[in-house]
């Protein structure tokens, strides 16, 4: 909670992230890269085994280099996953906190109170997005000082829109605090 600087009593109600399918493509690329050396070794073994003597040393060298290659891919995979997972909107009782993890050492945090929201637009494009239920979320602010919030390929955008609107309506209906200042000489 320290990383978000939540107010006393402020609780996180909901977390909004990009759909898992966005990260699945990255994972697939890593999986393909993991298989390639193994396939190459098998191809070389099959077609060149008459020309190359595959000693135990060559086999051990292959496994050493392959294990180190897999370790490298494993690290890359988790760096990508961290960037994906820490890219999130936290919806609290008072506001939306947009955390953009742009890289391991590049992080942006913005917050938007519900009473400053002007409109929420969602866009679901394509068959895959419709079936898997993901789309773009755009929260427009009423303030000139702050920029709009945007998340691409968010999971369950319609559900998120409903939650945000519900809290926006509560904030809008809440009576505003009025301060009465006594005026000297007034009857």
């Amino acid at each position: 909670m320290k990383a978000l600087n939540l107010d006393p009593g402020e609780q996180i109600i909901f977390e909004v992230r990009k759909h898992w399918f966005v990260f699945f493509v990255t994972g697939l690329a890593v999986a393909v890269a993991a298989i390639i050396p193994f396939v190459l070794y098998e191809v070389i073994f099959r077609f060149l085994k008459s020309a190359i003597v595959f000693t135990e040393e060559i086999s051990a060298l292959f496994w050493l280099l392959y294990a180190l290659w897999l370790l490298l891919l494993w690290i890359i995979f988790f760096i990508q996953w961290t960037n994906y997972y820490l890219d999130v909107w936290y919806i609290t009782g008072k506001r939306i906190i947009d955390v953009e993890q742009k890289g391991l050492f590049h992080r942006e945090v913005s917050s938007l109170r519900f009473d400053k929201i002007q409109d929420i637009t969602i866009e679901v494009r394509g068959i895959l997005a419709t079936i898997l239920n993901y789309g773009d979320l755009h929260v427009q602010t009423a303030s000139e000082d702050s920029s709009d919030f945007f998340m691409q390929s968010a999971e369950n955008p319609e559900g998120v829109r409903k939650i945000i609107f519900a809290h926006h309506n509560i904030a809008a209906e809440r009576p505003a605090a009025v301060k009465i200042v006594p005026h000297d000489g007034a009857p």
């Binding site: 040393e57 051990a60 060298l61 050493l64 294990a67 180190l68 370790l71």
Partner: peptide, 11 residues
């Protein structure tokens, strides 16, 4: 992965 690499290195 580190264990496999170490075992291979030992061989």
């Amino acid at each position: 992965f580190l264990f496999v690499a170490l075992i291979s290195l030992a061989r």
